[in-house]
Design a protein around this nucleic acid. Structure first.
Lengths: 104, 104
DNA sequence: GCAACATATTGACAAATTTCGATGCATCGA
DNA sequence: TCGATGCATCGAAATTTGTCAATATGTTGC
């Protein structure tokens, strides 16, 4: 319950949603490296300071939505689809089953 | 984008998640009325003050997750499954399609 | 009409969040 | 080895959020 709230909180900021969209479909002209999306790329896309980006990335990683891999001096980030799958699953009870309240 | 963030924010508090679970499967022994779940019932379940509950209900209604119907002096609340369906849909892109980043 | 009750709103306060500049820590290239 | 680069952390400021007491609004029953 607490953890679920934490996950939703990680998604409750427009900057972090922008980050996720960029990680999903990175505009390669905005990426400094061939190997993937690094923190400094995100900085450019969001127009936010480096510490702020670092903070947002930390929250996304802690919530499990993003995986960080440190290579050399760069940190490369990728979407973790499983976390979104699980989260979508935890929403199902609110819409999949017919809502049974006060009917049987 | 902003609106999506607002929706996630509405789900980012443990008290509000508890409210949703209670609305989904109300313990009828905790409901003062036969007709449904009213705000005062939620008060008892959460152990929060009446203004606080009113505030949480307002956020859930504004986000579209809960529908409020005022009847007499009571306000009855129900889950709105469609809102959850749409939200789950907006998560799909992060896990449904293969993540294409840097592969084509 | 009046008293009791359910809910909403207001005002206040503490805690959490977002943001940045400054600083520290690795790592790479020359 | 040294300077430059990328990222993390710290400390602080501004804003937002969660909570409650007090009050207001509206409805029911007598």
């Amino acid at each position: 319950m607490e953890e679920l709230a934490t996950q939703f909180k990680a998604l409750s900021d427009p900057a972090r949603l922008k980050i996720l969209d960029f990680l999903l479909e990175p505009d390669r002209s905005r990426c400094t490296r061939e190997e993937g999306v690094c923190a400094c790329d995100v900085e450019g896309v969001l127009g936010l300071s480096q510490p702020t980006v670092s903070h947002h990335m930390k929250l996304l990683v802690q919530a499990g939505f993003v995986t960080a891999e440190k290579r050399g001096r760069w940190a490369f980030y990728t979407i973790n689809p499983d976390a979104f799958r699980v989260l979508a699953g935890s929403l199902e009870k609110y819409h999949l089953a017919p809502v049974l309240a006060y009917c049987c």
